[in-house]
């Protein structure tokens, strides 16, 4: 579904990604972890071309992301993305947040878009807040709306960029619950997160990155059992013992 081949990326002369390759199959849940600055957020943003890359190739569902003739808006509309800071549109109500892209991009009628939006809002348990503005919701609620917004486009895959990092501890679970359910329903997911509990529960594979390189790319059991690299062992020992 998502294929990343030998990606390299520079900010000026500073190399942020070095020769990264991996593959995410249909229905697979892949967790990307690593210390901050390791390039994990950057690589996930390359998948839907929010960040350009200079070398290598990424294809999503057979379509080249960096290709000169690629209809980027169309491709992006098929890949859902959830951000660390939610990025709901603060000047629009929850309902408008859910329907805007459905109407403008997919050409759905307002009624159809609203039906779809409400169905998803109900699924994340926030139907009661449909007329509120993002600023009136808690962080956890905002992130659930953001997930519903991404799902409203009927994506073929979902990207999560540290979806729980900006949340208060007591709100992390309500968001993770939604994500776990999504994973169990068979959604193809690429998740940048430090939530190892989530990884243990639903991930098929874990990718560990450091300094712009993919150090480990293995099954969940291998990763939590015996990571091959010293760097990953050190990382795991640090985040699992606190």
């Amino acid at each position: 579904m998502i294929s990343i081949k030998n990606i390299s990326k520079w900010y000026g002369s500073f190399q942020v990604l070095t020769d990264c390759s991996t593959e995410v199959k249909k229905g697979e849940v892949v967790v990307v972890c690593g210390p901050s600055g390791s390039g994990k957020s950057t690589i996930i943003k390359c998948v839907n071309a929010l960040e350009p890359f200079q070398k290598g190739a990424i294809t999503v569902d057979g379509i080249s992301v960096g290709g000169p003739k690629t209809d980027l808006p169309k491709l992006r509309s098929r890949i859902g993305m959830v951000f660390q800071n939610f990025e709901l549109f603060p000047h629009l109500s929850v309902t408008e947040n859910l329907t805007l892209a459905q109407i403008k991009v997919l050409g759905r009628t307002e009624e159809a878009a609203r039906d779809k939006g409400f169905k998803l809002l109900d699924r994340v348990g926030l139907m009661a807040h449909k007329d509120k503005f993002p600023g009136q919701l808690s962080g956890g609620q905002q992130q659930r709306v953001a997930i519903a917004r991404a799902l409203s486009m009927d994506p073929i895959a979902m990207l999560f960029d540290e979806p729980t990092s900006a949340l208060d501890p007591e709100m992390i679970n309500e968001v993770l619950d939604v994500m776990v359910k999504l994973a169990q329903e068979g959604m193809t997911m690429m998740v940048v997160t430090h939530e190892m509990g989530f990884a243990k529960k639903v991930a098929h594979r874990v990718i560990f990155m450091d300094a712009g390189k993919i150090i480990e790319d293995c099954t969940k059991d291998d990763f939590f059992g015996t990571p091959r690299s010293e760097r990953a062992q050190l990382f795991l020992s640090k985040i699992l013992h606190h």
Binding site: N48, P73, M81, F83, L88, F89, P90, H91, L106
Partner: peptide, 30 residues
């Protein structure tokens, strides 16, 4: 306007004009 807002618009498949007209400019104007 935070860059993430533009990203969010693009990630949903909105084009430049929609992202500007519906997301960035209304907030910038306010």
């Amino acid at each position: 306007i935070a860059r993430g807002q533009v990203w969010a618009g693009y990630a949903l498949g909105l084009n430049y004009w929609h992202t500007m007209g519906r997301i960035v400019l209304p907030q910038a104007f306010r």
